[in-house]
Each structure stands twice: as C-alpha cells, then as structure tokens.
C-alpha cells in the first residue's frame, strides 16, 4: 500500500518537531559559543574561538574543571567499589532479605538531590568537617552507587549461573570462580556503571552548588554562579565545552557499549 497515509505524515512531522525541541538549546549554545563579538547575539555576526580561549584562561573554570574531574574520579572509585561488591553479594544470594538490600541501597534515588544536599550540609557543619570535597563526594557516592549496583546486577542476571556452576563442578573455589569466570563476563556492565557514575558526578549541579566552598567548587557550580548574573559569552563558551566533552564521552561509551542499550535497553 503506497498510499500516502496522513497518520504517518503527522507522525513524521511530530518526530521532526520534537527532535528539534530536544536539540534547540544545545544547538543554540554551540552556535553562540563560536561568536567573535563581545556580546551574545543570535545568530552571531561573525565566528571565532576567542571565547573558548577566554574561558580556558578563566581561573575559576580551570580550577572548577580540575576539581570536578577529581570529585568524579573519587566518586566513581568509591561507588564502584561498594556498588560492584554489593551487586555480587546481593545478585548471587537466594535469601529474600539480602535481595531486598538492592532496594535499600537504591533508597538515595528516591530522595530529591536538594534534600540530600541540605542533609549533608547541616550534618557536615555540625561535625565541623568541610562540606567540600567531603560532603560533596559523600552526596555523589550516595546518588551514583545505586546505578553501579543496578547495572552490575543486570549483567549478573543476564549472565545466569551456568558458567559459575560449571566452574564449581570443575573444582574451582568461590573466589577463584569470581575472579576468573564471573567478573570477566560482567565487565561490560561494571564498566558501564562506572562510566555512568563518573558522568553523573561530573554533571551534577544541585548537591555541588549547596556543598561547594570557595576554592573547592565544581565546574557546574561555577557555571551556575556566572549564569545567575545573566547571559555571558564566557559562560556560553564553557557550556559549549561541556557539550563537546559530553559528546566525546558519549562517543566513547557508544563505541564500547552502545548508549541506547545502556539507557533504553535497546539491543
């Protein structure tokens, strides 16, 4: 039936409009970030990379970027360690009580980030411990561990128990089996979870803003500070940089796992 179906036309038109809406703010940032003028104007009268250079030379952004990287790496290491270990402990247990711990560890996801931020802010101030980086990393660990746990557990479930049982039947110990049979096979899920934790921490805004201290501020928090003063070509450029950084990251993840499979369970 090659009749032009008005429904499919409408569907396609909607898809195009929806996709444009999704991409609009990102495209506007990318276009405006390459302006050569001293002010924001759309579309830019002339193009250049002067604002990127200016942004890279801004100490607040330099420090923010390095600080964000450090926080994200440490977060990723801690939540990776406790998340993967919990996934193995929970995922291979038959006790209902232990299995329910997956929900317990995921509890921070049900608490809004702003509440986590306030709770940690007041607690760390009560303990007289600097909220940044300690409170900040704690907060990020709380919100990223559930993802590492879930992704690793999903891998474990898809893997099934057969190779593991085969290893035991061949006389291998539990630890040896874990090391040589289980972990190598669930590596994609683990690495996926770690990368996700890294990016989540690197991108996180609310906890970062509430807990950051002078000299210990993440890049998203710095951008928030600048952006609350209004539009600024310097912020546009650093935002453009964040988009390109994420794009590079997504590209790597896509090559390794397929972004869609990771997020939308697409084959």
């Amino acid at each position: 039936m090659n009749i032009i179906d008005p429904w499919s036309m409408a569907r396609r038109a909607f898809a195009v409009l929806f996709a444009s809406f999704m991409l609009a703010p990102l495209l506007v940032i990318l276009i405006m970030s390459f302006t050569n003028e001293g002010y924001n104007r759309f579309p830019p009268p002339s193009y250049g990379i002067r604002w990127y250079i200016a942004a890279f030379e801004t100490p607040a952004f330099q420090q923010g970027f390095l600080f964000s990287l450090k926080v994200a790496v440490i977060t990723c290491a801690i939540s990776g360690l406790i998340g993967i270990s919990a996934a193995i402990g929970i995922g291979r247990s038959e006790s209902r009580w232990v299995r329910s711990m997956a929900t317990y560890v995921s509890l921070p996801l049900t608490v809004p980030n702003i509440i986590i931020a306030i709770m940690l802010l007041q607690t760390f101030s009560r303990l007289s411990i600097a909220s940044s980086p300690y409170g900040l990393i704690t907060g990020h660990v709380l919100v990223t561990t559930p993802y590492v746990l879930r992704m690793t557990m999903t891998s474990l479930e898809t893997l099934g128990r057969q190779t593991e049982l085969a290893s035991y039947s061949l006389g291998a110990s539990w630890f040896y089996t874990l090391r040589r049979v289980v972990l190598p096979q669930i590596a994609p899920g683990m690495v996926g979870g770690l990368l996700f934790a890294f990016l989540l921490s690197f991108d996180e805004v609310t906890i970062s803003i509430f807990l950051s201290l002078p000299g210990a501020t993440t890049l998203p928090s710095e951008i928030f500070g600048y952006a609350s003063q209004g539009d600024d070509p310097l912020v546009t450029a650093i935002s453009g940089f964040m988009i390109l950084f994420a794009a590079l990251f997504v590209l790597v993840v896509e090559k390794l796992f397929g972004v869609l499979r990771l997020i939308a369970n697409e084959k």
Binding site: N40, T236, I263
Partner: peptide, 20 residues
C-alpha cells in the same frame, strides 16, 4: 536525540534556554 541530552549537565541545558 531523546536520550543523549541526559549526558549533558542540567546546568548546561538550562543555560541553553537562558540564552534562548
């Protein structure tokens, strides 16, 4: 297109609307 903005910081997506 629907999913990939999730990889970009909320602050950046917000700033995109700010300059729009």
């Amino acid at each position: 297109v629907v999913v990939s903005p999730l990889f970009i910081s909320v602050i950046v997506r917000t700033y995109g609307w700010l300059i729009i």
